[in-house]
Computed example of a mutant assay.
Amino acid sequence: MNTRSRLIPTLAVLVSSALSAPAAWTKDDPAAGAALYATHCTACHGAERAGVPPTFPALIDVGKRLQPAQIKEKIRKGGGLMPPFPQLSEQEIDNLASYLAK
């Protein structure tokens, strides 16, 4: 069997694996994050992310105040009056953080 004959089945397996890869291969989706924000965050932070200071901070410029990892950690663990959101998957947290950081 020559090299080319062995390479084609190997490439087919790699392409097939990549196409059926889990969500870890997906990129952040700010539009999906906006939908999550509407569901989980507007009650406290408002539809326009203006918040109700000082109780619920504005999130309009949160991307300037916090690093993406800090935003994700706050979503995961909560803090102060903000509850944690353990029901969100890592991809959902990435999407929500992406939306908030822009």
Rank of each mutant, 00 (worst) to 15 (best):
P83H: 05
Q67D: 13
Y99R: 01
I8C: 04
C41T: 11
Q87K: 08
S16G: 15
G33S: 09
P22L: 12
L66W: 06
K102V: 05
T55S: 00
R65M: 10
R6I: 09
S5A: 14
G33M: 05
A31V: 13
S20H: 13
G63K: 09
V13P: 05
Y99G: 00
S5D: 13
F85D: 02
D61W: 11
Q70T: 10
I71W: 04
A47M: 10
T3L: 14
A97P: 02
W25M: 14
K72W: 00
S89F: 02
L36H: 03
L100N: 06
H45I: 05
L19W: 12
A101L: 04
R65C: 05
P86W: 00
P68Q: 07
P22H: 12
M82L: 04
L66D: 02
A35W: 00
P53N: 01
A12E: 09
K74S: 10
A50Q: 15
A47T: 15
K72Y: 01
A43W: 09
A47L: 13
K74R: 15
G33D: 04
A101W: 03
K102T: 09
V62F: 06
N2C: 02
A69W: 02
F85H: 15
A47D: 11
S5L: 13
D28C: 09
S20I: 15
S98Y: 00
P57N: 07
P53L: 00
T3S: 10
L36Y: 01
Q91S: 06
K64M: 13
A12H: 04
L14P: 01
E92G: 05
M1N: 12
G51R: 00
R4Y: 10
L100D: 02
A31Y: 14
A47S: 15
V13L: 15
S20K: 12
L96N: 02
E73A: 15
A21V: 12
S5V: 08
A31I: 10
A69M: 09
E73W: 07
P68C: 05
G46D: 07
R6Y: 09
H45K: 04
I60L: 08
I75A: 03
P9F: 04
T26E: 14
D94S: 08
K72R: 15
D61E: 14
L66R: 09
A18M: 11
L59Y: 06
L96W: 07
S98M: 01
V15P: 08
D94G: 02
K27C: 04
P30D: 10
A23S: 15
A69E: 13
G79S: 11
K74T: 13
L66T: 07
P57T: 08
A31P: 04
A24D: 12
M1D: 14
F56Y: 10
S17Q: 06
S17R: 07
V13M: 12
M1T: 12
R49I: 03
K64G: 10
D61H: 13
L59P: 01
G80K: 02
R76H: 09
G63D: 09
K27V: 14
R6G: 11
P86I: 01
P54S: 00
E48R: 12
H45Q: 08
D61C: 04
T3D: 10
T39E: 13
A47N: 10
A21W: 14
I60W: 00
H40G: 07
P30W: 03
L81M: 04
Q67F: 09
M1E: 10
G78N: 07
C41R: 06
